[in-house]
Amino acid sequence: MPILAAQEQNAVAHWASGPDLAVLAEVFDEAITIAIMQRQLGPALRASITAQCAAQPWQLAWRGPADATLEQALIRSMPAPQQAAELIADVRLLAEAVACLFDVDAVGIRMRLLDGAMCPRFHCDNLPVRLVTTYSGPGSEWLPEQALDRAGLGKPEPGKPEVVRDAGAIRQLAEGDVCFLKGSGWVGNEDRGIVHRSPAVVAGQKRLMLTIDPQF
Rank of each mutant, 00 (worst) to 15 (best):
S140A: 08
L208H: 04
W142I: 04
G18F: 11
P156S: 02
L87I: 05
I36N: 03
R39I: 05
P57F: 11
L173D: 03
A47V: 03
Q52G: 02
R192A: 11
A106G: 01
M78G: 02
A51K: 06
A73N: 08
T50E: 15
F28D: 12
G183V: 04
D90T: 08
R112W: 00
A85D: 15
H196E: 07
G183D: 07
A80L: 02
Q7H: 11
V132C: 03
H14M: 13
A97T: 15
R110H: 12
D20Y: 05
Q215N: 07
A117T: 10
E175Y: 07
W58A: 01
A169P: 02
I170S: 01
S77C: 15
E141D: 10
D105P: 00
I194N: 03
M78A: 13
F28A: 13
P128S: 12
P81I: 11
Q215I: 14
Q83M: 12
V195L: 03
Q72P: 00
E175K: 09
L131F: 08
L148H: 03
E162Y: 00
F102E: 03
S48H: 05
I75V: 15
K206D: 01
G193I: 05
L93I: 07
A99M: 07
I109L: 15
Q59L: 11
M1R: 09
R63W: 00
A54T: 13
G168W: 01
P161D: 04
P214C: 06
L127T: 09
I170V: 15
I170A: 01
G204T: 10
I49S: 02
F122P: 02
M1F: 10
G185D: 06
R171A: 05
I109D: 04
S198M: 01
Q205Y: 01
A5R: 14
S77F: 01
R192L: 10
Q9E: 12
T133H: 02
A73Q: 10
A47Q: 15
C124Q: 13
D105S: 15
E190Y: 09
I194E: 02
D149R: 05
I194Q: 08
G204S: 08
L74P: 12
E96S: 13
V178A: 00
P57K: 09
A47F: 03
P120K: 00
C179K: 02
V202F: 06
R76Q: 15
L87T: 04
D115F: 07
L153C: 05
P19A: 11
L101D: 11
F28N: 11
G42V: 02
E96K: 15
F216I: 10
Q83K: 14
V129N: 00
R207E: 05
L94K: 07
D67S: 12
G185A: 06
G159E: 05
W186K: 00
L70I: 10
L127N: 10
A99I: 06
A51V: 10
A6Y: 11
R76V: 08
V202D: 14
A68L: 14
T33Y: 03
R130W: 04
Q7I: 13
Y135K: 04
Q83L: 14
R63I: 12
I34S: 02
P57A: 04
L94E: 06
Q146R: 09
Q7R: 14
W62L: 08
Y135W: 15
F28K: 12
P138E: 13
R76P: 00
W15A: 12
